[in-house]
């Protein structure tokens, strides 16, 4: 089942990339990043059947970092919403020349 798991992981990662590139809602872009992290976790777990439990330890670390990232990122989104009353990335163009 290793090859199938890695193929599924690649497909999920690509779907996450497509989502980041196509969506304009900052929260959904953020959820796409979470999907990409999940895809990487799947390949970690699949390879841990071959190489021992170290991969699963890394999955736990990835989950922790994802939780921290979600907290900070959503706080940033809330702060941006207070300023601009929108989370649409089309309207958040302060750095556009």
């Amino acid at each position: 089942m290793l090859a199938e798991s890695l193929a599924l992981s690649a497909a999920l990662f690509a779907i996450g990339v497509v989502g980041v590139l196509t969506r304009r809602n900052a929260i959904i872009v953020f959820m796409c990043v979470e999907l990409m992290l999940n895809a990487v976790n799947l390949s970690f777990v699949a390879l841990s059947t071959l190489y021992g439990a170290t991969g699963q330890v890394f999955v736990i670390f990835v989950m922790t970092v994802a939780a921290a990232e979600a907290a900070v990122g959503l706080a940033i989104i809330i702060a941006i919403f207070r300023h601009k009353q929108t989370v649409n990335l089309q309207n958040i163009n302060l750095l556009r020349g």
Binding site: A14, I15, V17, V18, L21, T22, R23, R24, N25, I28, N88, Q90, N91
Partner: peptide, 17 residues
């Protein structure tokens, strides 16, 4: 404002995926 990018954005994103 539309949440999903236009036709070209979707095409490019699909190609990259």
């Amino acid at each position: 404002i539309s949440d999903i990018r236009g036709k070209w954005g979707r095409l490019v994103a699909g190609f990259i995926g």
